[in-house]
Amino acid sequence: MLEGKFEEASLLKKIVEAMKDCVSSCNFNCTENGISVQAVDNSRVLLISLLIEKDTFEEYRCDRNITLGVGLGSLSKIIGNGANSDYLTISADDDADKLNIIFEDKVKDKISEYNLKLLDIDADLLDVGPMDTDATITLPSADFAKICKDMKVLSESLQIIVTKDSALFQSVGDIGTGNIVIRPKTDIDHPEESVTISLDKPIDLSFGSKYLSDIIKATSLSQKVTIKLTDQSPGVFEYKLPSGYLRFYLAPKFDE
């Protein structure tokens, strides 16, 4: 039996909104430690790795490891029915063919209950393992979202060049070019506004703008995003949860 109670429905809403345009369905793997997901988009370019640790939940129990195949569009429709501030409890029996979803209004005496039909999903898993990182950039997630949106008007590729003291985001397209440079900054009064860049090796990587547009749908999950880049390797874009993370692994573009 799985049972997990979120203090606020808004957290699961944000997670599902961040994932559903990239993958239509995925397996939620539930263990005593929490819930994890690995899913790859249809073009096999963008991988989502989600970990919701049990401490994220107000209450959590999972007696036996279970896998729940979930259609994210359908889940999004159902959890859209609850208010952001509602308690949200998900539960499933060990051999379940449905996920039970309950919203509890914290003010009114109102409980809403839904069942979501589960899917049988047969997906290959990729072994992403621990990766070496040549450069790590941490910046406000809203700033990163704006950079991606602004650069997308110019080109279907975004080049990220990291040197010791700056990160350059560059787009070169038919109508013109754009450059945005960010440098490390410590803001003591507003730590969420700080920018850090750590570098072992200079980086020059290009990524598809349309995939970055999918990644920045996670912006509301965290005030910060951490970007880990390694030469000739996929980029990792991580949004921290209160306890856990939503990570995107994005395959780069290479010169022919």
């Binding site: 790859v40 370019v45 990729l126 072994d127 992403v128 692994y249 395959a251 290479f254 022919e256």
Partner: peptide, 14 residues
């Protein structure tokens, strides 16, 4: 021209 790589170019299938 840049060619889009796919994830299995980097990560083995489990």
């Amino acid at each position: 021209f840049k060619k889009q790589k796919i994830l299995s170019d980097f990560f083995p299938t489990k």
